[in-house]
Design a protein around this nucleic acid. Structure first.
Length: 517
RNA sequence: GGGCCCGUAGUUCAGCUGGUUAGAACGGACCGCUCAUAACGGUUAUGUCGCAGGUUCGAGUCCUGCCGGGCCUACCA
């Protein structure tokens, strides 16, 4: 179990988009899970990447006077930069324009086709290039110019063309049975309900090819047709583990994926179409799809037209990377929509990070520095209070694991911060500054217990705040090879007498600039 | 039109299969401490648990209706 593989994915992001806080949020959640499971000794494969096909990209490239490939080569860098800026630990970055992906997408097409689930017909309807979706006549409205527009506001055009279809309508019952037998397949529950009721409402066969543009993966044996972008895009999850080579690749180790993390807007593609495609191709279905909510800017959905889109780089430069990582996962219950704002960010940074954990480390380690010759103190016999704190620090990894496995990041963090609170209460109740005068040996024990607690906390917060955690652990002179969850507990406890570097605050308070001046 | 979710202290939210005086965090007020990043600890809530009925010995927790907010989905003339 401890060494079992763990494969998780972000959606592949639409290469045309400018990376915003929503993209950063999704991948951050995956990054935390990836790091957590690595620390737990698991063999993790963490995938992200970009979705680069489709008519919209083709048009954007033309508008920029570039060929689509060099256009996507260029703009996909924005997402690689996001990964660097946010300190993501993805093991792979896939682009759907890569050869390995073309191979995989054509292979899954053939598998579905060979199993008799694809047929050729023709499609006619109102199509929106921007939304990459067809709309029913009744859904359309007209704008001022009399142009028909989709509910999303996008322009639509009448398209009539030959098209291959996937027999999605036949998968209603198998899907419902699949959801029934895999109650954890979709999270959170509210999304699961939605998906189930959508499928119960009946499914129509899905048009899965286009002939009206070229920028995409050709249908096997009929290159006039380009594969539907979603079939193309979803298959990236297979590509990255080596499909269609199911023998001599990571496929056998990592497929089916443990988790597809998605935003709530694309849950249908992942929870309905994707398992249907896979079942039709005779492939195993992923274990879980989790749809998180939106980050709202003070209650309003972020959009270009409102001009209130929050960019990750702006948050990072204002607050620092690790505080932003912590804030995003602590402030908003994952799965719900939630507000983010400067006020709540500053409050979290100051109360949770600076005051609680940062000050705990600083007050403890500076006492060690001043009163124990700057070395790990030598503990005497442990009291009940000592044991209680140490076991809380050790046991919380189990709570965190449970909560993170359910994608309840806010709850996992809350559990860890309970230990921070315990430790601060312990300092006050033990009053080592008094013991310094009355009972130096006991003081040494108390400071040792605190140092051990901080060691545990440092190890535990690594997935969320890798750099800050490293600083904390550096201050305890913990070797980089001694920082996994296997090192929690007394077996790897600090060695008395180890000399320690001079402590320095890890989490500075956030002070508004206006307030300063 | 159908379906799902939500409405609990100033704020953000916990409250599982119904059961003693409804909880946490943050903010506020007061007290304590002084090791520490003026940080830490303790004490402190007159909350009509959206409204109105109902079931029950007993409901924030189940049922019905209504009001308000969000989401999914369908659509007639």
């Amino acid at each position: 179990m401890a060494s079992s593989p763990y494969y998780l994915t972000t959606p592949i992001y639409y290469v045309n988009d400018r990376p915003h806080i929503g993209h950063a949020y999704t991948t951050l959640a995956c990054d935390v899970l990836a790091r957590f499971h690595r620390l737990d000794g698991r063999d993790v494969h963490f995938l992200t990447g970009t979705d680069e096909h489709g008519q919209k990209v083709e048009k954007s490239a033309t508008a920029a006077s570039k060929d689509p490939q060099s256009f996507t080569d260029e703009v996909s860098q924005n997402f690689r930069k996001l990964a660097e800026d946010m300190n993501y630990s993805n093991d792979d970055f896939i682009r759907t324009t890569e050869e390995r992906h073309k191979r995989a997408a054509q292979a899954i097409w053939k598998a579905i086709q060979d199993n008799g689930h694809i047929y050729l017909d023709s499609y006619a309807g109102w199509y929106s290039v921007r939304d990459e979706a067809f709309y029913a006549e009744t859904e359309l409205t007209k704008n001022e110019d009399g142009q028909k527009i989709a509910p999303t506001g996008a322009e639509v055009e009448w398209i009539e063309e030959p098209s291959y279809f996937f027999d999605l309508s036949k998968w209603q019952e198998p899907l419902l049975e699949f959801y029934e037998q895999n109650p954890d397949f979709i999270g959170p529950d509210s999304r699961r309900n939605e998906v189930v009721s959508f499928v119960k409402g009946g499914l129509k066969d899905l048009s899965i090819s286009r002939t009206s543009f070229k920028w995409g993966i050709p249908v096997p044996n009929d290159p006039e047709h380009i594969m539907y972008v979603w079939l193309d895009a979803l298959t990236n999850y297979l590509t990255a583990v080596g499909y269609p080579d199911t023998e001599n690749s990571d496929y056998s180790k990592f497929w089916p994926a443990d988790l597809h993390m998605v935003g709530k807007d694309i849950v249908r593609f992942h929870a309905v179409y994707w398992p249907a495609f896979l079942m039709a191709a005779g492939l195993p279905t992923p274990k879980r799809v989790y749809a998180h909510g939106w980050l709202l800017n003070k209650g309003e959905k972020m959009s270009k037209s409102l001009g209130n889109v929050v960019l990750p780089e702006d948050l990072i430069s204002q607050y620092g990377l690790d505080p932003v990582r912590y804030y995003l996962l602590r402030e908003v219950p994952f799965g719900n929509d939630g507000y983010i704002s400067h006020e709540t960010m500053a409050a979290r940074i100051n109360s949770d990070l600076a005051n609680d954990i940062g000050n705990l480390a600083q007050r403890s380690l500076s006492m060690v520095a001043k009163n124990c010759d700057g070395a790990v103190p030598t503990p005497g016999p442990l009291t009940e209070a000592d044991e209680t704190l140490l076991s809380a620090a050790l046991d919380v990894v189990d709570s965190a694991r449970d909560e993170f496995d359910r994608q309840a990041f806010h709850r996992g963090l809350d559990a860890i911060w309970n230990v921070v609170g315990d430790a601060n209460r312990y300092v006050d109740s033990q009053a080592p500054w008094e013991l310094r005068k009355t009972d130096p040996d006991r003081m040494a024990t108390v400071l040792y217990v605190l140092a051990e607690t901080i060691r545990h906390l440092g190890i535990l917060i690594q997935p969320i705040m890798p750099d800050a955690a490293a600083q904390m652990l550096d201050q305890l002179a913990i070797g980089e090879d001694a920082r996994t969850f296997a090192h929690l507990g007394p077996a790897h406890a600090l060695t008395a007498g180890t000399s320690l570097p001079k402590p320095a605050p890890v989490f500075p308070r956030y002070v508004d600039e206006e307030t300063v001046s």
